[in-house]
Amino acid sequence: MPESATGIRATTRRECARITSNRLYPLLMIVLPLTSFGILWAIFHQQVPRNLPVAVCDLDASKLSRQVMRMIHATPTMDVLFHVSDPEKGRKLLLEGKAYAFVLLPRSLERDAKRGKAPEIIGYYNAQWLLAGSLITRDLTAVVGTASAALDLRARRLRGEMYAAAKAHVEPIRVETHALFNPQFNYLYFLLTTLLPTMLQIFVLVLAVHSIGLELKEGTARAWLETAGNSVWRALAGKLLPYTGNFLILAMFILSFLFRYLGVPARGNLLLLGVGTVLFVLAYQAMGILLVSVTANLRLATSLTAFYAGAAFAFTGVTFPSMAMPEIGKAWGELLPLTYYLRLIIQQGIQGAPCSTSLEALGALLAFALLPPLVSHKRMARLLRHDRYWGKR
């Protein structure tokens, strides 16, 4: 067997012994990742928020106002849980967080509508709850538009217009929209698909930093290097190999769970996505090597890990468009392997984009996997050979 393979194998055996002797490692490698995946799935398994409680104040008490109330209650998004007689009570429910919206049906609603005075149905909602507010606004607008169109259509029919002509007059110009990749507005597709890899990158980076930094903290770096035949490359490869295998299994589990069990569309090249997944794990391990080599301090490297990975999702462009970010936000997003991996999942999973579209993301992940170890190699060699870097907490 070649010397390089022997060194990697010996280092891997040594690392496996360290893993089995410390309860923290199984916790970070298996228990906490699976627990976080389960919590996220439990949050989003309903796919679309439904039956959000709203309050309604009906000051008209007419046939039309009761019909509007029934239409609001019939929407999948809203549940008329509170009927109030005073607008102030409705606003109080909204401020207390007991209702996501408050709808006010004004006096003389039906009379003014029949006279063509265009009465206003007023809706209050908390825009701070962006998701709930947008869903309620969409459905409330649809309800009022449907009710208004029905009144107009009925009035035209009573004036003697034919049904087809009356319908055309009610809606003379139509908008035809096509939602291409998530027509159900399924938040499981939108958020769970991206949040699971986001959680995974945290554990990959934390364990890479901890496993390497602990050797410096405990002063065992020389023994680690000697086990690898005094080769920094073999030492790093052998140490990280058990974690690489573990997290690749978890990553493939995530993809299988999303595409097979949950039915997230897999329209693109899954082989390309598999290659990207391998590079994604290696990229974050490479960043862990870089953080430890720069700081030579486990505590500081762990703090930088939290800073680098903790808020990463906000800069990936999934929830807030990258093109709308300031330049510093765009730049920070481009320094995150997660940005490119999520782009790859969306392109090759949900969108089914051509393989050429994803080559940029794949190339970026490859660069993240290769460049940090190359840049930090000399520095890491000094850290492992000189005891003045050891013992720092």
Results as ranks from 00 to 15, higher is better:
Asn269Ser: 03
Leu34Trp: 03
His178Ile: 11
Leu336Ile: 00
Gly229His: 00
Thr319Lys: 13
Leu214Cys: 03
Ala223Asp: 07
Asp86Ala: 05
Phe253Val: 01
Tyr125Thr: 10
Lys217Cys: 04
Ala361His: 02
Ile289Arg: 15
Ser62Lys: 04
Leu104Met: 04
Asn269Cys: 04
Asn269His: 05
Glu110Asn: 02
Phe313Pro: 04
Thr295Ala: 14
Pro2Phe: 15
Leu262Gly: 03
Ala311Phe: 13
Ile136Gln: 06
Thr198Val: 07
Leu241Phe: 05
Lys167Phe: 08
Arg154Tyr: 10
Phe203Met: 01
Ala179Gln: 04
Ile350Cys: 00
Gly219Leu: 02
Gly229Gln: 01
Ser358Arg: 03
Arg50Met: 15
Leu216Ala: 01
Arg393Trp: 09
Lys392Asn: 08
Leu241Ala: 00
Ile289His: 10
Gly90Cys: 06
Phe203Ala: 03
Ala235Lys: 04
Gly213Glu: 02
Met29Pro: 13
Leu300Ser: 13
Trp390Asn: 03
His178Glu: 11
Leu290Asp: 08
Leu272Glu: 10
Ala306Thr: 13
Val175Arg: 13
Gly288Ile: 13
Met78Pro: 09
Tyr261Ser: 11
His83Cys: 12
Arg138Cys: 10
Leu365Asn: 01
Leu344Ile: 12
Glu327Thr: 06
Gly245Glu: 00
Glu171Tyr: 08
Thr141Asp: 11
Glu161Leu: 12
Ala74Asn: 14
Leu94Ile: 06
Lys239Gly: 05
Arg343Thr: 07
Ala314Thr: 07
Leu59Lys: 14
Leu304Gly: 13
Ser293Asp: 11
Tyr341Leu: 01
Phe247Tyr: 07
Leu94Gly: 07
Leu205Phe: 08
Pro265His: 00
Ala309Gly: 04
Thr316Gln: 02
Leu135Ile: 05
Tyr308Asp: 15
Lys89Asp: 14
Thr177Tyr: 10
